[in-house]
Design a protein around this nucleic acid. Structure first.
Lengths: 231, 231
DNA sequence: GAGAAATTCGGACACCTGTCAAGCAAACTG
DNA sequence: CAGTTTGCTTGACAGGTGTCCGAATTTCTC
């Protein structure tokens, strides 16, 4: 008579946000273009995810239980399983959400630059401010990326995200090279590895209290020059 | 009658290996130079730690319980608390043990090189073989370093280890620079950050099945040249 | 070999984990 | 307005966690 949990969307093993679609085809006539009920479900997922991100960023993946997350949201732990059928799905959804925001931010920031100097300053400025204001979120990313080396449930999602970040970094380098009459001297993977190391240590140092804004700035400037060469 | 657990050493909050000393002063006459009883305790700690490292490398920090560790050793979980009064102490002891071995290995390996080419080849060869054979141990290190960003019990130990590695890397760079008539162009922290990024991604890629031995080799060669400059 | 100390075991403790399902309220549908 | 779907809560479940302790066993010392 009742359904224990939402039929269709949630039971699917695909983590993609096809839930909306499935619900629409489920609701009945496709001509009902008022997409309200569709968005409502996805909206709540996002709201829950944002609340979860706060707790996750504070406590880390391993130490955060679903009840901790629920406590700092407007709902109880049962509700989490209504919108996410897994802890893993919730976590990957959260991280993907956060990281996609980051990537979009960096993309628009760098695309706006019109000179190489613009790009360099915009990029290093963004990195520094991310390091300072988003340090706790960043450490969550590094935490989950580490966990993904052990929990293969996370592996695929994390790998995909990491590839997106790699692409984003390489777009920055390409743009910088293009504007300064240079070309990349390393492939995207190596380029990303170096920037990632720089950024990871920036975050760790910052969290450890060793402020290093100028060092990070000079590191980025050095690295941007180092991974490109005169064409 | 009996003592619930070892008096002195273990109750101390200092994780340093002063246990041996305390036991000696406890045993009685200091002229009893036969250090057998001293070593026995420390020996068992090492034996336990080595067994623990196997399990930890396989399952990661968060997913490994003390019972898992004990299961793959010759003892039961109760014994672990006899030799380590904390899970944190056991873990940091393990990681410190492993990392110190690594550092010693790299040090001797590089010190033996007599030309810049020697150093380069020895270093990149060691990195590649570590990446391949020790991938699971390395991911444990990255795992625990991430956890240390959340659990302040681990923070101090991990930070100290990270500093040791940073020093080791800079010794390699210094040696390479010296032998090739160059000098470092970055401070130790930035130098380490770049190498660490390279190595971290090498390990991740390797664990993900994307073999990249030649890419790592060329990355190291590039980086060694990049973080030094003609004097 | 007797007595004491060091070691090891196995079970208990209180707590926390993700998952699930039954019950109820609210919103929507005809 | 009746009936159905959706949303959310509460409580239970089975299992796992680190920690601790009493007792049995081994090892050492005189």
């Amino acid at each position: 008579m009742r359904m224990g949990r939402r039929v269709g969307g949630l039971v699917s093993d695909e983590y993609e946000s096809k839930v909306g679609l499935m619900k629409k085809t489920l609701g009945g006539s496709a001509t009902r273009v008022r997409k309200r009920p569709v968005d409502k479900f996805e909206d709540r997922r996002m709201q829950l995810a944002d609340a979860a991100l706060v707790t996750l960023a504070e406590q880390g993946y391993a130490r955060t239980g679903l009840r901790d997350i629920a406590e700092r949201s407007d709902f109880t732990h049962g509700t989490l399983h209504y919108y996410f059928h897994d802890k893993a799905e919730l976590i990957t959804y959260c991280v993907r959400r956060y990281k996609n925001r980051c990537i979009a931010r960096y993309d628009s920031l760098v695309q706006d630059g019109e000179t190489a100097q613009d790009v360099l300053e915009a990029f290093s400025g963004a990195v520094v401010s991310t390091m300072i204001e988003d340090a706790r979120m960043q450490r969550l990313w590094y935490d989950i990326r580490s966990q993904a080396m052990f929990e293969h449930v996370l592996a695929a999602d994390v790998a995909a995200l990491d590839r997106d970040i790699e692409d984003m970094i390489f777009r920055v380098v390409l743009r910088y090279a293009e504007l300064s009459g240079r070309e990349p001297s390393l492939n995207p993977a190596l380029t990303y590895a170096l920037f990632d190391g720089l950024f990871l240590h920036a975050v760790m140092n910052h969290l450890a209290g060793k402020a290093s804004e100028s060092e990070v700035r000079s590191g980025i400037e050095y690295l941007l020059g180092s991974v490109t060469r005169p064409v």
